[in-house]
Design a protein around this nucleic acid. Structure first.
Lengths: 197, 197, 197, 197
DNA sequence: AATGAATGAGCATTCATTCAT
DNA sequence: GATGAATGAATGCTCATTCAT
């Protein structure tokens, strides 16, 4: 046979996803993964060079696509009217993406401590923060909120991001997720929306 | 002697706080704590049955007080006008509390993974969620937002809580914290506030 | 088919020679050998029962021939005049032998640690020792050296042997080897030679 | 207790010496050493940070002293009459040194493959080679030996060194070693000696 | 015959906890 | 009370050899 058996590879991946989800990268045990996959420990290393690479195999592709997706959204410099559309856009893009990589994304975001991805959430927040800064400042101005400290913006970016992941963590049903993400964006960009009503 | 020496106990606690803050419950090393406390490792186990109990000693009291404080706030069933006051009240209470237990609280919230407290944030959020539910529903209604799912409220509670902790994590200066917490509450209960202006 | 294909066998042997030369018996990897031979690892075990036997296949024949050659030299009980000739003879015989089995011999001598051949050098030395004993004793006597211990003879045998292999290890060019071996023999049997000049 | 128990440390060292002598640095097993020392594996690591350091503890001091001793001998630039004395000197120095570190020296020289000391023999030979070059060239000239290749000198250095270690490997008795080293030096510098008789 | 997937004992190392002094 | 030495299960990983196809 020329290629490694997909079934076993999949078993290992499945077992690894289970273990990483349960314990996180750092605490996950290769032995447990092997046992769960019904495979000798040595054989796991035929399929994946080491723990790191096994983690990468699960999370790497998602990382790449996810960050490029986020970067695209971030590039879309929008005037305010376009912001409305963007909220729709964001939801759609996230949905499309998440549909394929749900579990992996959550591992990447929530369980990657100790791996090279451990800072991804912070990076994401920084990006989002940078992106929504100008828009939020306008909103705040319109509502008479004066910021003495940029950190409050960073908090909003962080909680916005967190909100999105909370939705993704909770639901698997696409329609449901879409609905909630829409509402979340709506709430966060409420005033914005209203002014153009 | 029947009584363990307070000084040693305190040294251990101090060293443990340092180590838990740095590495979190799970990655903290009993050896490092003992060394930092200037105490033999075996002796640590005379004062604290095990790692778990040492963690408890630090975080347990804060846990109790914190949850009871939160529960108090939660009990304060308020009509909407009282919400304004509540925002002030919340800030004050948190400050008062945090002033005494700053480090321990952050360990409890951020560094308890692997311990029995790892779900405390979630519990807190549930409480907050329950508390702000009715008020937020009114606000949403007034703004034409219809919620088909309570989970969006939960997310708001969670991000609200997260926001508070982000402030506490970032600053040590009381005035600064107060200012930012005020703004955070202001933003979250913005509309609420405005309608009664 | 009853017979294993010679080509594959040869490929494996060639790859094994390369690997054993590079890493020695113990550190050589069966996987690397299989890969280098362009053969599945399992198939290597069809041709050779195990690592040991693979090593034997390479080194065994050389071992046999080499020891028998040495034994022949050892049998040639020579009077002293014949010694001169012997030095020439030795060089010639070694060259002739080495010409055919160069690599294998060096593996046998230098890279067999961990295998059953690891003591071959010692055996060889013992033989050489036995052979040159009487001659060297004469030389020593003539030079006023009195040996209280035969071990000094053994050391000379050993270093003589080592010298030969150092030449063989260093050079591949036949003329060069011959020249150096000649000089080595000349040095070791210097006085002997001189007396018959 | 403030200090690690010497007895156990010594047991570990003794077990390690046994294991390193038997299998060499690379193939020695920490588990086997622990078992041989009658100690739990974890405890070995209280006494020695890792395998490397355990090996160092045995071989490091010998390495330092040995190389410095050799370097001293090498520095003693001697005219030819002094060479005679040197042969005595060498024997004495080696004896004095070896008396204390016999086993460790042999591990250093013969069993350090895979450790950072693995090239020590070669370095030693290079030093000796450099040192005896001029003297031997004179001897060769006087005896009508013309060297077309410096490598023959290197071989003599190497076999000289090897001869010394063969003596050390074989005997533990000081008088015996002294006698044999003396004879060895005498033989190697025989002609030299004779010309000044 | 040939493949290469599978096995599992082995390795060095770590660390919470226990135990003898 | 205090010490820190001792324990041993657990970790990630390797590799000669076997086995199912």
């Amino acid at each position: 046979m020329q290629y490694l058996k997909d079934e076993i590879r999949n078993n290992i991946i499945a077992a690894a996803i289970k273990e990483f989800t349960l314990k996180g990268y750092q605490d996950a045990s290769m032995r447990v993964i092997a046992a769960e996959a019904g495979v000798a420990i040595g054989n796991v290393y035929r399929y994946f060079k080491n723990k790191d690479e096994l983690f990468n195999s699960i999370v790497g592709p998602v990382y790449t696509k996810f960050t490029s997706m986020v970067f695209d959204l971030y590039q879309t410099q929008g005037s305010i009217p376009e912001m409305q559309l963007m909220t729709v856009d964001i939801t759609d893009k996230i949905m499309e993406f998440y549909d394929k990589y749900e579990t992996e994304l959550l591992i990447l975001i929530d369980k990657s401590k100790g791996s090279k991805y451990e800072d991804i959430k912070e990076e994401l927040i920084r990006l989002v923060n940078y992106r929504i800064k100008s828009e939020l400042l306008v909103i705040f101005k319109e509502n008479g909120i004066k910021l003495k400290d940029d950190y409050i913006l960073y908090i909003l970016a962080a909680t916005f991001v967190e909100g999105i992941f909370m939705v993704l963590r909770k639901y698997r049903d696409q329609a449901k997720i879409k609905e909630l993400l829409g509402q979340l964006l709506f709430i966060y960009f409420d005033d914005l929306y209203k002014r153009f009503r």
